[in-house]
Design a protein around this nucleic acid. Structure first.
Lengths: 208, 208, 208, 208
DNA sequence: AATGAATGAGCCTTCATTCAT
DNA sequence: CATGAATGAAGGCTCATTCAT
């Protein structure tokens, strides 16, 4: 007997799966557990998803879409608001965006680390993010200083390994960090932002 | 004392397990597969290891030991060699050390990302590494500037998220990065070192 | 009375089921597959059929009815047409009849072969067929030679194992035979008819 | 704890599987049922067999081997014994051979009937059998009458559809036939042999 | 030190079937 | 007539682990 609309059931399954995958990893989570935690029949999961992998891929596709949406809305809002909207505020906002999605980010990282893995959603997300940053920066370079701009690949390496990676690792590990080093989240966030500014932002590849 | 053939078998199992865990993750690798790949009888694995978890823990303990050893030898060698031994060279050496252990590093990262996870080998390694860096830096601060030194926690956050994390993520993802972005390893390494220097090293939390 | 769209849907389901059962066997075919292949909702199948078994039973009943109809029309036409209508032509016609129903025949054979099986549609069909043959032959025996006629059971064994079985096995296996032995259907049919005439028909239990 | 040698366990599984496949068909038999009936752990079945299909293939390969062995021994014995060893006796012996293997024969037939099926063990067996018959017959044709011998393909069609098929169908269906038509096995066998002689053997494609 | 055999529990997936709409 | 949603049971298969030898 259908209690809820199909879409809601599916969304529920996805949320539960995201939580469990983040907790125990993809292979550490059984479809049975997902079903029980979500309070649905196991077979129903296979009514909505081709197989277990389809669940994680759905999650990945969702986060890609959300990221694109986020980026697009940032572009349009960026034009209207004050240009002086400080970098620090932008950074805080981004971290907030990622913190709200720390579960899927952890999952994406875990899966990306498997040498076997054929999915490259982490890199896809990174590209989306970096391309946007790239455009922003190019804007600032308009007429002058163009020759000082680094090669694209170099730029991507910089953005990925000293920008995106610290940020997403931060959201993925902050809870465990706090627990291990006995510090509170607020302070950690503050320190992280400070560190990130001093390292990644301050130099920004010698552009500023 | 001559290594018994047993010790070698055990080492072989560990090496195979490390490779497979790095490829498919801990839960994605079965003891059966380890046995077959290592060419040993499945039951023999249980002769050398209490259970499957004991294998990964052994790997983690090994890397902790190797790190300690590496650090200690750096300390002693640091005293003897030229102080001017440039930071860039030190960095290259460290990356080399990590690159040689990229499999276990990937595994450690994967496991650390699981929200459930009770093991904290990643943080243990980080602490060992950071404590050493800390001592080095303090040395340089000896008499003067002491008041300018940041709070320990702040320092650790900086070292961990903008130093260690980019470095180990680099060694863990470099192969996949090159494949995805069609660049060669040499160039990626060069760009990474450059990026790392410009971000993490150049500022070094405003100490220099 | 115009066929309701419902009747057509039912017929469609039956056709699809027949095709699939012949391809993968009854147990190898899921109701889901039938529904998808037929392009109807799964639950609709249960609107028309009590359960999965009801589908195959429907098919069996259909073929029984068709056989009865075929036999009856042969009887009436036999009276009107030339008695000399050669045996070979009769045989060809019968084979054509069976070839047009090779799918359900294959299914019937498969199911009959299961030692467990409680349905005896194969034997039912055989009885219908043999009884008719029996009457035809008896006709020819009318007044004379009656004593020479074999016992009924013996007659049935002969008709079944050397008449019906070769014929229905031929229609069931001809495609695969051609594929395996690289021969074309025309030639196989010709050879089969020849073989059948020489063995089953020529002797016809020593009656002729 | 291993009660028996592995080979015996494997043989036991095969025997049980053969019985169950013959009763309910391959798809109608679950590995679970095989395990329970054989009194072994389900996982043990996968220790000895790659998958469920490997079980049936093993059975098929066994029967092929047994057939080859049977044929070979017939050849050698044929030379030593009286040439007059009547055809009827030879036939009885063959039927006995097939009756002793009626389960696997039923299975082979069932599987061969599936239009989908990619395995052709039935045809393989048939070829082995027919090739042997062929040689025997050719022997008898030695110098004379050679031109009267039919084309090979024609010969195979004859042997397969009017020789092998009636015979194996007989062994596969005799129990059910007796039950359905209320006759005893002895009588059925007698009638069948008689019918087979009169149809297939008597003409033998017009060779005799 | 090493192995073949064995197991219970659990895995992912599909089954036939039902029900509310 | 027809459908989307739901389910309990069972499917094939693999898991980590153990034991006797």
């Amino acid at each position: 007997m259908p209690k809820t609309s199909g879409e809601e059931t599916k969304k529920n399954i996805l949320q539960v799966a995201e939580k469990l995958f983040a907790e125990k990893g993809f292979n550490g989570t059984s479809v049975n557990t997902i079903a029980k935690t979500a309070g649905v029949n196991k077979a129903l999961i296979y009514y909505y998803f081709k197989d277990k992998n389809d669940i994680i891929v759905s999650l990945f596709k969702n986060i890609v879409n959300e990221l694109v949406e986020y980026i697009n809305q940032k572009v349009t809002s960026a034009e209207s608001v004050n240009q002086d909207f400080s970098m620090r505020n932008k950074l805080k906002e981004e971290i907030k965006f990622f913190l709200n999605r720390k579960k899927i980010i952890s999952i994406m990282l875990m899966e990306a680390l498997k040498a076997d893995n054929r999915s490259d959603y982490l890199f896809q997300c990174a590209e989306i993010f970096i391309n946007h940053e790239f455009k922003m920066v190019m804007e600032a370079f308009k007429d002058h200083k163009r020759n000082k701009f680094p090669e694209t690949l170099h730029y991507m390496v910089y953005e990925f390994f000293t920008g995106i990676i610290p940020m997403i690792t931060f959201v993925a590990l902050q809870d465990k960090w706090c627990e291990h080093f006995h510090c509170d989240q607020e302070k950690l966030l503050e320190y992280f932002i400070d560190s990130f500014e001093k390292s990644h932002l301050s130099s920004h590849l010698g552009l500023n």
